[in-house]
Amino acid sequence: MYFYRSIHCIKAFTFDLDDTLYDNSMIVEKAEEEMVKMLQRHEQLCTLTTSDFFAEKYAVLTSYPEIYHDVIVWRIQTIKSLLSKTNIPVSKFADVIDESVTCFNFWRHKINVPESTHLLLTKLATKYPLAVITNGNVDIHQIGLGDYFQFSLRGGEHGRSKPFPEIFDLASDKLAIPSHHILHVGDNLLTDVNGAINNGFLACFINIYHRNILHLDNASCLPHIEITQLPELENLL
């Protein structure tokens, strides 16, 4: 555990999800692949590839730049855009979108949360209020983490995604704790560290990259704390 900035009294924790509380490697990729397979069941989309899907996804982003704040809306709009280029009746769009999103969500939540994460959150939750701030679409209740947190905020649904201020401000308001007493923990230097610091939070960077923080992309400001393993946070108890 490294300390780069002085720490105010910590009164609450907020956590990122993916690659912070669990290893998210290939989870999204697998979910996207299975969703594309689902879409391929329709004759008009039988030749669709994951590359085609991502090309369409970024074409949608070009047309609607703000859509990236909400990954769920972005995915639905991408599927809808693909369907609009086929002869599938518009009346069938909702059914195809629903089955595709359901498939994606099934695989998206095939996450193995380490026992060490459960143990840490159990200990922290006895002393601090805990909350989630995520840019993804994981439902904490579906992966067995719901009981530890007072609430979970998601980019798009609860304001612009990290590092923008709305979602951090809302977390502070819902916790009823000033932002300078809240430690945000995450693996992304831009969305988590810069986002937290620029919005008055304390920042803890979990360095999963095994590289000097100063050599990492987006290392424009130092966090208050750097850790390499989540259980190190127990040292703050």
Rank of each mutant, 00 (worst) to 15 (best):
residue 86 T to D: 07
residue 91 S to H: 10
residue 100 S to I: 02
residue 192 D to Q: 12
residue 168 F to A: 09
residue 191 T to E: 13
residue 100 S to W: 08
residue 87 N to L: 13
residue 104 F to I: 06
residue 101 V to G: 03
residue 178 P to F: 00
residue 89 P to W: 14
residue 196 A to P: 02
residue 86 T to H: 01
residue 77 Q to T: 15
residue 102 T to D: 15
residue 109 H to S: 08
residue 109 H to I: 02
residue 142 Q to P: 06
residue 162 K to S: 10
residue 88 I to P: 00
residue 104 F to N: 01
residue 116 S to D: 12
residue 168 F to W: 09
residue 191 T to Y: 13
residue 142 Q to I: 01
residue 134 T to S: 15
residue 126 T to S: 15
residue 177 I to T: 05
residue 177 I to C: 02
residue 111 I to K: 09
residue 127 K to E: 14
residue 139 D to N: 15
residue 173 D to K: 14
residue 145 L to Y: 09
residue 193 V to R: 06
residue 136 G to Y: 07
residue 85 K to T: 09
residue 156 G to T: 06
residue 120 L to T: 04
residue 142 Q to F: 10
residue 164 F to W: 12
residue 165 P to F: 01
residue 142 Q to T: 13
residue 84 S to C: 00
residue 149 F to C: 04
residue 184 H to K: 09
residue 137 N to R: 09
residue 191 T to M: 12
residue 168 F to L: 01
residue 177 I to H: 05
residue 107 W to L: 11
residue 84 S to E: 13
residue 178 P to D: 04
residue 88 I to W: 11
residue 172 S to Y: 10
residue 146 G to E: 11
residue 138 V to A: 14
residue 178 P to A: 05
residue 131 A to V: 08
residue 98 D to W: 02
residue 193 V to H: 06
residue 77 Q to G: 08
residue 107 W to R: 01
residue 132 V to I: 15
residue 86 T to K: 12
residue 112 N to I: 14
residue 179 S to T: 04
residue 161 S to P: 07
residue 99 E to H: 08
residue 96 V to T: 04
residue 148 Y to T: 05
residue 169 D to E: 11
residue 122 T to V: 11
residue 132 V to E: 02
residue 160 R to W: 14
residue 138 V to N: 03
residue 97 I to Y: 05
residue 111 I to T: 10
residue 133 I to Q: 03
residue 104 F to K: 05
residue 99 E to G: 01
residue 125 A to S: 15
residue 164 F to M: 14
residue 132 V to K: 08
residue 153 L to C: 04
residue 131 A to M: 10
residue 76 I to L: 02
residue 172 S to I: 12
residue 107 W to P: 10
